[in-house]
């Protein structure tokens, strides 16, 4: 399924905007906007989401191109990692107090 709001037809389609706040950080979702094409979407994103020095790099993606996990299958999708504490360092208590470990 695509991103919410992106499925409907409009004169100018909906785009999702991702902004990198500074070097070394990931692009994070900032919001969305409307634009006729990718070039204008980038420029609109620059004008709308970086007016206060919020970013050094921008991604835009048509909302309809985003694939999201199905909320109805949330349990099946996200159950497995639960209960597998051995994936986390805190599980290994016997090493406590040993330096550089």
């Amino acid at each position: 399924m695509s991103s919410p709001g992106g499925g409907e037809h409009e004169t100018w389609p909906l785009w999702e905007v991702f902004v990198r706040a500074s070097r070394g950080l990931s692009h994070l979702h900032a919001g969305s906007l409307h634009a006729p094409d990718a070039e204008m979407a980038l420029r609109n994103a620059r004008d709308l989401y970086t007016r206060r020095n919020e970013g050094v790099s921008i991604w835009v993606v048509p909302s309809s191109e985003i694939t999201t996990s199905d909320p109805d299958e949330k349990d099946a999708f996200f159950e497995s990692p639960k209960g597998k504490r051995y994936r986390h360092a805190g599980y290994y208590t016997e090493a406590e107090g040993v330096k550089h470990l």
């Binding site: 706040a21 994070l28 900032a30 206060r52 020095n53």
Partner: peptide
């Protein structure tokens, strides 16, 4: 988006 995910600065 958490409150810290976008930063605002004045810019010199």
């Amino acid at each position: 988006m958490s409150e810290t995910s976008f930063q605002v600065s004045v810019g010199e």
